[in-house]
Design a protein around this nucleic acid. Structure first.
Lengths: 191, 191
DNA sequence: CTCTTTCGCTACAACCTGTAGCGTTAGGAG
DNA sequence: CTCCTAACGCTACAGGTTGTAGCGAAAGAG
């Protein structure tokens, strides 16, 4: 390919600047103008790489989101507790405030939405794997509706953080894990 | 109070214009400039009444959100189904897309956030009342964590609509109602 | 060495926001 | 009926963001 190659350092600086601004000011206050300024670059450099603020932020999140563990604890309940805990770390971060703004933008940005969904999908894999393991172990009889379970695990914490703006306490997360466990195994849930 | 009284018709026109724009274009595309234009008024008229776009939209929503029924069906499960169904109507509306943008703005708008929370709080009352009735009926032994139950009922549908962007089917809603019923009564949930 | 693409930089039109200021007007207070 | 005050109609401004365009200069690929 002829032509001057892209400067990888410039890209790195822009991503770092975006991440920094995302943490300190939040998504809404994050501006491509400010990103460029913080990266000591030009606004046009940002537009040359990302077609929108949402695209940029999705890339930034994919790079910095704390991972969801996928280790086998030996029991379904243990796995669920691990997954719930790791998801809660992300939902407890200060920048989740901005997640609302991001998902709002995704509605007019099909490409960014696709990238975002791919990322979200990947973060749901540990939960699905835990269910597969539990099924092989015999802890689960009938195969569950994975989509519903996903909503069930992440939905309440999303609701609590975004609308209720309350913290996710260990007790709360434990209740969530036991709830999912009860639903998956068909046993009574005692909270 | 001396002085020229406010024009109630002007207020009505502005609210109607905002509601119209909110439905057709969504929250993000809604602009105080456009609201004023659509209402055949001046931008300053909007600023004189609401201090921000979020405040205006909260007022609009309070006026137009479909209500949540609070009637006694005779059984906890029936009440839960009714409440879940009514909540789902709101979460299925097209403008929920804009809810993300609104809640994003609420973060820098304490007054609007307060008004929004008051509204959200009110919409949670039918659920709480249903639990009270079920407790008096003897369907519920130990008083549940109302906050958790609220997250449990509304969280999954919020998650499904906002992140998954999937529809809320009758089966899905029924599963949600039975889930809440199982948790409240301490019985096994069979989905 | 040449050619192509990126880069640095400036500039532009378009839009929205929030505030200010001005006469004008309507209606309550007296 | 006459004040007097606040709302109204309207214009204007400063500040910010967006997206795009264009240019010469630089850096590698071929």
């Amino acid at each position: 390919m002829p032509g001057r190659p892209r400067d990888p350092d410039l890209e790195r600086r822009l991503l770092a600047a975006a991440w920094s601004l995302l943490q300190s000011r939040g998504y809404d206050a994050l501006t491509l103008t400010k990103v460029a300024a913080e990266a000591d670059a030009h606004r046009t450099d940002v537009y040359r790489r990302w077609s929108s603020k949402a695209q940029l932020v999705v890339d930034v999140l994919a790079e910095h989101l704390p991972p969801v563990s996928d280790r086998d604890t030996g029991t379904l309940l243990g796995d669920l507790r691990a997954v719930v805990h790791d998801l809660a770390v992300s939902w407890s971060s200060s920048w989740v405030d901005g997640l609302m703004g991001l998902t709002a933008d995704l509605h007019h940005d099909p490409d960014a939405e696709l990238a975002f969904r791919a990322m979200a999908e990947g973060r749901g894999e540990p939960l699905r794997n835990a269910i597969v393991r539990a099924t092989e172990r015999g802890e689960i009889r009938t195969p569950p509706d994975l989509s519903l379970i996903g909503d069930l695990v992440e939905g309440p914490m999303m609701h609590r953080r975004m609308l209720g703006r309350q913290p996710l306490t260990p007790d709360y997360l434990n209740a969530l894990a036991e709830l999912a466990h009860g639903v998956l195994t068909g046993t009574a849930v005692v909270l």
